[in-house]
Design a protein around this nucleic acid. Structure first.
Lengths: 237, 237
DNA sequence: CGGATCATTGAGATTTATCAACACTAGTGG
DNA sequence: CCACTAGTGTTGATAAATCTCAATGATCCG
């Protein structure tokens, strides 16, 4: 880790802390928070951060890289719950239970901050800003999960996926119109509840229609407006 | 309200309080909780508890009746987010935001307990049991929303819907194998992301195959095992 | 009774999945 | 440097599930 020396004072790469600051926490409180942070990683592509059934003790904020969360159903099919970019938090769905309900795997080289949940919960009773932030994070995920649940067309889903990704990347300072897909087509398919072939075909058609350029895993959004219009009913809030 | 005199001491009909007790709260704390509870209702079928865009200030526990939460998308289609039975809490998806992101409407005569969210959050800093309960409620909804999102067949969805309803009713002391559907077919369809016609056909076929009897809105589950087997990959946890 | 709402049924259209084959890429080792 | 291979992605043909549209039927409530 490059910034070992700083990790107990201020972790500039950890968006979790920054968000807490925004919720009204002072720097003194932030240091309380950082005492219970554990920097973990790097995890290399394919390495698991946790697996379904592992005892739950911590949530984690992605600091770098991409993390995929997924479940395997009784029929052996993979269901991707989400792709998590730097600044986003995983493990929230495990709070209600003894174990993680899903798996989390790194798609590229990923670094995380682990927060012991029992400890952060105790701290949250002392720091209203932290509690509020946690409530918000949880609440946001409810809404996010509900959105994907709608019966949208393949085109709408794909557009929403790309626009959503673009916005989240932009919020982290990356380019909003040109980026790498860190996940395989199959992962996108399992996330959007489509067949991989359908993902392929939709991307191809989007390219033919001038909405984007796609080369292997490199994507460039050309007609953001039209994509956003497609995605609109899904992302609408 | 029948139990006006008791509502500041103990609200036996409010499962929210009971769950908090189970999380380790003592009776003294429970009274703190009840000071900020507001019993609202009855709402009659079709009356709204809140609407999308209303300023968010409170979550609410259903005490009696059924509440449907839903959104209308840009194309004017209704998306049902959930049906909420006594003991279940609505409004959690509004915590991250200034306003409710969805509508909540009574399907039959419904009574609720409103909890001012700012107040309950403050109280939660003093009562760890309450904070834990809230975290769990939120976390549970994330998992629940993710489940419905899968690409399941119409049969699986319908079976999961019925078995899920049956279990929740049973948990509240109602019959697990014979109950009333308080929602219209269209509501079920919008919840399961199916066409109303498909709902009708699946129910009819289930009846033909001896899985259940359905008459108008009255349902009797005859072969719970087979329905549960169908629903299994969806409900699997 | 009459109208409105809700539910059912059938026929055909549409979307997406499935199956099978092929292409491309990157990495490996001869 | 060139096969070779494994993994990944693409493409086409066909099939299956579900939707849509249209019509009919049932129930409730004034």
């Amino acid at each position: 880790m490059a910034d070992d020396g700083d990790e107990l004072t201020f972790c500039s790469t950890c968006a979790f802390s920054q968000a807490c600051l925004a919720e009204g926490m002072d720097k003194r409180s932030l240091m309380d928070l950082h005492v219970l942070v554990e920097h973990v990683g790097p995890f290399h592509a394919g390495e698991h951060i946790f697996r379904e059934g592992d005892p739950f003790e911590a949530i984690a904020a992605v600091r770098a890289g991409t993390v995929k969360t997924y479940m395997i159903d009784r029929d052996g099919r993979e269901h991707v719950l989400g792709f998590h970019l730097p600044g986003e938090v995983i493990g929230l769905d495990a709070i209600d239970g003894e174990t993680y309900p899903c798996n989390a795997v790194a798609l590229d080289t990923a670094m995380l901050c682990r927060f012991s949940f029992p400890k952060i919960a105790v701290l949250a009773t002392k720091l209203p800003g932290l509690q509020r932030h946690l409530f918000r994070l949880l609440s946001r995920d409810i809404g996010r999960a509900a959105l994907l649940a709608g019966d949208w067309s393949a085109d709408q889903r794909m557009a929403a996926f790309l626009i959503g990704l673009s916005r989240r990347l932009a919020a982290r300072g990356f380019s909003a119109h040109r980026f790498q897909l860190t996940m395989a087509r199959t992962d996108i398919a399992n996330y959007l509840r489509l067949a991989p072939e359908t993902v392929s075909r939709v991307l191809r058609r989007f390219q033919k229609d001038g909405l984007l350029m796609v080369d292997r895993r490199e994507v460039e959004l050309l007609d953001r407006d039209q994509l956003a219009a497609l995605a609109d009913p899904i992302l609408h809030r």
